[in-house]
């Protein structure tokens, strides 16, 4: 009888503990990620607790709010986890494995590259924190993949940090551009045209130049370009590399919000 009661209490406690995790930032704000299925419920909960919601980006699901119970965790920053990396919950239990980075879903492009993960047991709720072996926050669960059982998409922590940086710097979350239109034919991001009076034109980029890298990350196709541009923040200079007439052209450009 006692064992049964203990099990019930344990289950109850686990149920309470489960749910959306929040990362406490140095300025006291907290960040988490909710998807289209969990956003309404979570935001309702935040409002019921009379906590302030600072921002909710529909595209990435990032929710920045006031949350006194949020915890500070060290995070993996810009480090990308290789395939087969084991992921753990905050108690140190192994819960998932990285399959790889995914920049597209079916024939469509994702706004940035997500970790595709395989769960060890049950589905992971959106907002669940995933830690690496070093107990650093590496990713935040975004959504399950309806097509494949025990698989889903997790947002790299660097994507959440990018959103937070943009919000704290500019008070908004906005995508940036430099004013280039890449070729629709072929996989290489060759510049087809340059928009006048935007950073690329001001920096001397011309039609026919080929984009090689952004912030040190190699660009080889359209999906790489989308992923790299996601991380640009309005007014924050980044290093761009182009190829022109067989020569490398390095430029520091300051992206602007669209």
């Amino acid at each position: 009888m006692k064992k049964i009661l203990l099990l019930i209490v344990t289950f109850f406690m686990v149920s309470i503990c489960m749910g959306v995790d929040y990362l406490k930032m140095p300025d006291g704000k907290s960040i988490t990620i909710v998807n289209s299925s969990t956003a309404i419920e979570e935001k309702k909960k935040v409002r019921e607790e009379d906590r302030e919601i600072y921002i909710h980006d529909l595209m990435t699901g990032i929710l920045i709010s006031e949350n006194p119970s949020a915890k500070e965790y060290t995070h993996a920053g810009n480090y990308e986890l290789p395939p087969l990396t084991k992921l753990y919950d905050k108690e140190g239990n192994e819960i998932a494995t990285v399959i790889g980075m995914e920049s597209r879903k079916d024939s469509r492009t994702l706004p940035f590259s997500y970790y595709r993960v395989q769960y060890k047991n049950d589905d992971l709720e959106s907002g669940s924190f995933l830690f690496n072996e070093e107990k650093e926050l590496a990713a935040i669960m975004y959504t399950a993949d309806r097509k494949y059982k025990s698989q889903g998409y997790a947002t790299p922590v660097k994507a959440a940090l990018r959103e937070y940086e943009d919000f704290t710097k500019n008070g908004k979350i906005r995508r940036c551009w430099i004013g280039i239109i890449t070729s629709k034919s072929g996989s290489l991001p060759e510049i087809e045209s340059v928009r006048p009076e935007l950073p690329a034109a001001n920096g001397g980029i011309k039609k026919g130049d080929i984009l090689l890298s952004i912030a040190g990350k190699p660009i080889t196709n359209f999906h790489d370009t989308v992923d790299a541009f996601f991380y640009l923040v309005d007014g924050k200079p980044e290093q761009f590399s182009f190829m022109r007439d067989g020569e490398k052209l390095d430029l520091s450009l300051e992206p602007v919000a669209r």
């Binding site: 597209r104 975004y142 070729s183 629709k184």
Partner: peptide, 16 residues
């Protein structure tokens, strides 16, 4: 597209 649980873009727009 926000219809699914994950937002996706069409590949048509190549304006950066």
């Amino acid at each position: 597209d926000f219809d699914g649980t994950i937002p996706t873009f069409s590949n048509l727009e190549q304006d950066f």
